[in-house]
Design a protein around this nucleic acid. Structure first.
Lengths: 150, 150
DNA sequence: CGAGAATACATTGTACACAATTAAACATTA
DNA sequence: TAATGTTTAATTGTGTACAATGTATTCTCG
């Protein structure tokens, strides 16, 4: 007859090393730090880089669309986008067809960063020393978790 | 003859969906959010919960040791620990044998949270709907990445 | 021993994250 | 169409993260 783990310090489930969440938390921050030298050369933060990835591909998106893709809300995005607007990287304006929406449009200064950023993903892939198969497997796990958690 | 990817928008490596980093960033934040309801019942933030995991196991640690285990520096830990001290969850004092170090000691109010927290890991494991094998495989990948990135 | 290096923590300033609230525009439906 | 509800951003307040700097303590080695 099995018993549920006790609440004592012997409960190994309560040890940091046995948490599933902590490695994600740690790896996520370490990955961001690994980007740092490359992003600093462009004077970019990591979340700003993510916004650029979307704008380089789509040129124009609403705050809502950015939020859906990045899983961020306006509380995070509004000030972040304002800072990027100050740098002339993008443009913020209300959608005339629906004044509730704000359209974010890539400006030439933002577009010009793309050429300098295009080497970053390759650098990062080399940095982690993983086979294509391992990366593919990892991607599957992550996608599964994303769907489970959203 | 292969060419390196161009810097144009067609460079699929520059798309958000093909980044390895973004899923970690997203999963990490989603996991934290999944903890939220349970941690809120204890009036805890996620990093504070991580500190507790270590203190429940070790009772007493220096700021340096906490930082090494959580990969956080004093810039993050000092204010976080001060907030936890205000709640009487722990105690901060200089080590008499080395006045540079600060010893963090779990107090009874902090210890008493352990019993309420012990169900959290199990809840989270059920939440992600993954087999033990999948979790073990994922853990391996994460551990590999952690060592690569530290 | 004593000067300089190294260590451990605190502080400062910037930038996320995110819950909660507000406000304006739009949609719905009775 | 007018009241009600929904959607979209902005705002407010709190709490991390982290680079850069400051400061007191300890170590090291000539």
């Amino acid at each position: 007859m099995m018993h549920p783990p006790t609440s004592s310090a012997k409960n190994s489930l309560l040890k940091l090393e046995n948490q599933l969440c902590f490695p994600f938390y740690a790896v996520s921050r370490l990955l961001t730090k690994a980007y740092q030298p490359m992003l600093q050369a462009l004077d970019l933060t990591y979340p700003q880089y993510l916004v650029f990835l979307l704008l380089w591909e789509h040129q124009q998106l609403t705050v809502k669309e950015l939020g859906e893709k990045l899983l961020l809300d306006s509380g995070t995005l509004t000030p972040l986008l304002k800072r990027m607007e100050q740098r002339q990287w993008l443009n913020r304006r209300r959608d005339p067809r629906d004044e509730r929406s704000v359209i974010i449009e890539l400006l030439p200064a933002g577009r010009s960063l793309e050429a300098q950023a295009c080497a970053i993903p390759q650098h990062m892939l080399e940095r982690v020393h993983m086979s294509d198969e391992a990366i593919a497997a990892l991607r599957l796990h992550l996608t599964h978790l994303l769907t489970q958690l959203t």
